[in-house]
């Protein structure tokens, strides 16, 4: 990595860190925190899907594991929230490795991989809904105790800065990956797995590393979600909504680019807010727009659009 690789990320972090100075309105900070959590989950998806070309439809499996681990260890065993947060990341990474090991070893690619990840997420959802350990259908409430030592903050601004720091860290890690040997091999696998194999890339190892890192990042997003909203149930933690969010943001913002997930998440959530302001709270209306946007982005790839604009000039 060179300075040129790093300074746009640090600049983004510095500018975004100014937000709580100017904005104190709770709703806006709420919106910003939620969007940043999605950025983190989406960056996780981007590593596997964007750089590696393995489209997961079940990143909820990692998000939910990160979230539930953080919550269950705190509520049931009274473990320190910072420790449970890290444990959640670790467990999500392990779950990612196992799912990756099972599906990549069986040679699942493309649609089959998408299907199997979706099914894994659903298994977790059904289990967490049925088992008493995770609070069952009633969900799990993390007791409110707003102290920094408890990973809960009196002001939203502090939590915002913590989440932002983690997003910046994720951006730096993604940039480092992009510039690394592993990153190059990952892109090679995406572009043509057989050719990559032929020149000596260990495709299985590369994909396993990617899904593990990917799951850890999305798991971290889950842990932050639990820590911020202090409530979890099976449809929040393992629901399809987060699988879709994690996938949409990079696709809209540019899959396989470092800033794609951030751009996508900000576009999507700003759009959703604006729609809500304009037409009121009609349930589902924001997702209708997401769906249309997804189709349009695939139909008219922004890259082509940019090339077309340049060509006309």
């Amino acid at each position: 990595m060179t300075a040129r690789d790093v300074w746009p990320i640090l600049l983004f972090g510095a500018v975004a860190a100014l937000l709580p100075v100017f904005v104190t309105a709770g709703t806006l900070l709420n919106f910003a925190i939620f969007t940043l959590i999605i950025c983190l989950a989406a960056q996780g998806w981007n590593i596997l899907g964007g750089f590696g070309g393995q489209y997961s439809f079940g990143h909820a499996a990692f998000f939910g594991t990160g979230a539930y681990t953080a919550a269950v260890l705190q509520v049931r065993y009274g473990v320190n929230p910072y420790v449970t947060f890290l444990a959640g990341i670790a467990l999500a990474a392990i779950v990612g490795w196992i799912i990756g090991f099972l599906s990549f070893r069986s040679g699942l690619r493309g649609s089959y991989f998408a299907l199997v990840t979706l099914a894994f997420a659903e298994v977790f959802r059904v289990l967490s809904n049925a088992v008493e350990f995770t609070g069952g259908a009633a969900g799990l409430l993390i007791p409110l105790d707003a102290r920094a030592a408890n990973f809960q903050f009196e002001s939203r601004g502090w939590f915002y800065l913590v989440v932002l720091a983690l997003v910046v860290l994720a951006l730096l890690m993604t940039r480092a990956l992009e510039r690394s040997r592993l990153g190059a091999q990952l892109v090679a696998v995406r572009e043509n797995e057989d050719a990559a194999r032929a020149v000596g890339v260990d495709a299985l190892r590369v994909k396993l590393s990617a899904i593990t890192l990917s799951a850890a990042m999305t798991g971290a997003a889950g842990g932050l979600y639990a820590q911020y909203f202090l409530y979890l149930d099976s449809t929040i933690a393992y629901g399809t909504w987060i699988s879709v969010e994690a996938l949409l943001a990079p696709i809209i913002g540019g899959a396989g680019t470092v800033f794609g997930p951030v751009i996508g998440a900000v576009i999507l959530h700003t759009l959703a807010e604006v729609t809500r302001m304009m037409v009121g709270r009609i349930p589902g209306i924001d997702l209708v727009i997401f769906g249309v946007l997804l189709i349009l982005v695939v139909r008219f790839p922004p890259r082509n659009l940019l090339a077309w604009l340049r060509g006309r000039r």
């Binding site: 070309g53 649609s111 879709v244 349930p283 997702l287 209708v288 769906g291 997804l294 695939v298």
Partner: peptide, 21 residues
């Protein structure tokens, strides 16, 4: 392949939520 995956996913999100609305 990946485009079809995404377009049909987009369609399903669109339809499902239009009906919800």
């Amino acid at each position: 392949d990946s485009n079809i995956l995404l377009v049909t996913l987009g369609l399903s999100i669109l339809l499902e939520n239009a009906m919800l609305a």
